[in-house]
């Protein structure tokens, strides 16, 4: 069976140990975690975990059921079954020598990014977007010399509800 990338949006009780339970479930049962993002929702006692995982259909079905089985999990949405928007934020520290600066600024402009830190030999760039866009800017900046990258991992919400 073919493996596919799935984005799970998981609402959980905002209590200590809940994240540990979810991560433990994935490691204990050998499921993949590609990215993981956790923060409070508009209700302070509920957190949203956005998790990207890869698996074939039976594995994805088990992941969903096993998540539901955890007492502190309120709702599990497999967003890939619906229309959804996804975003990720990346910070890229790129080598920026005098002769490269203009070109980097042009690239940042094209991707609607921002320079958030500047030094004599580097820029730190902030870019937001879906995974493909971030991959594209990283590809464009690679020849300049990328010093470091920090990514938030995917967050996502369904379009209609």
């Amino acid at each position: 069976m073919t493996e596919k990338r799935h984005i799970f949006s998981i609402l959980v009780d905002n209590k200590p140990g809940v994240l540990s339970g979810i991560v433990g479930l994935f490691s204990g049962r050998g499921y993949n975690i590609e990215s993981l993002c956790v923060a409070e929702t508009n209700e302070p006692d509920v957190s949203r975990i956005t998790m990207v995982s890869i698996g074939d259909k039976p594995v994805i079905e088990q992941i969903k059921k096993q998540l539901y089985k955890l007492i502190n999990v309120i709702k599990v949405n497999d967003l890939t079954e619906t229309e959804y928007v996804q975003r990720e934020l990346v910070l890229i520290k790129v080598t920026a020598k005098q002769d490269q600066r203009a070109e980097i600024l042009r690239i940042v402009d094209i991707f609607r990014g921002k320079i958030v830190d500047v030094g004599f030999e580097h820029y730190t760039i902030e870019v937001t977007g879906p995974v493909e866009k971030l991959a594209a800017i990283l590809k464009m900046l690679k020849p300049m010399g990328i010093k470091d990258v920090a990514r938030t991992g995917n967050i996502a919400l369904p379009r209609n509800q």
């Binding site: 039976p58 079905e61 088990q62 059921k65 096993q66 539901y68 089985k69």
Partner: peptide, 8 residues
């Protein structure tokens, strides 16, 4: 009673 037991 446990959905995880089904199709596992």
């Amino acid at each position: 009673i446990d959905p995880t037991s089904i199709h596992k």
